[in-house]
Design a binder for these strands. Structure first.
Length: 114
DNA sequence: AATTTGACCATAA
DNA sequence: GTTATGGCCAAAT
């Protein structure tokens, strides 16, 4: 009954990630919330790790951590730099600290309106 | 089937 | 400012 959403948890995360508009970024926590997994910021990170390589339609590079910084990791095989490059390509400018001003690029805007 | 793994966030000291 | 800790979950091997 109610086959409302028997979709894999990860797929919902991917769906939420695809909704991030170009030139904008969302945090893991936000994506988790949009995916219907409030508080599961970690799952988002886990899911994205499994998808990053065969990248298809998922703008995984638009997902960053709550600090407004790209989550670098040794296990990422350098995909973290690809993320940096892609964000720059979309017109996003990093601060001197290598961070992204969420107040400007954060999405959805409603979470960052002053 | 059990073990391993993995890109977070918030709080406390 | 850093460091440590708890919480949370699913997929790949």
């Amino acid at each position: 009954m109610a086959a409302i959403s028997i979709a894999p948890a990860y797929e919902r995360i991917y769906a939420a990630t695809r909704q991030i508009p170009t030139g904008r970024v969302a945090t893991y926590g936000t994506v988790a919330h949009l995916a219907g997994l409030p508080g599961q910021a970690r799952l988002v990170g886990y899911a994205l790790f499994r998808v990053a390589l065969p990248d298809t339609e998922i703008p995984w590079h638009r997902v960053i951590n709550a600090k407004g910084e790209i989550s670098r990791a040794p296990s990422r095989h350098g995909s973290d730099w690809v993320q940096q490059a892609r964000l720059l390509t979309e017109g996003i400018v990093f601060t001197a600290d290598g961070k992204i001003p969420l107040a400007v690029y954060g999405w959805p805007r409603s979470l960052y309106l002053k």
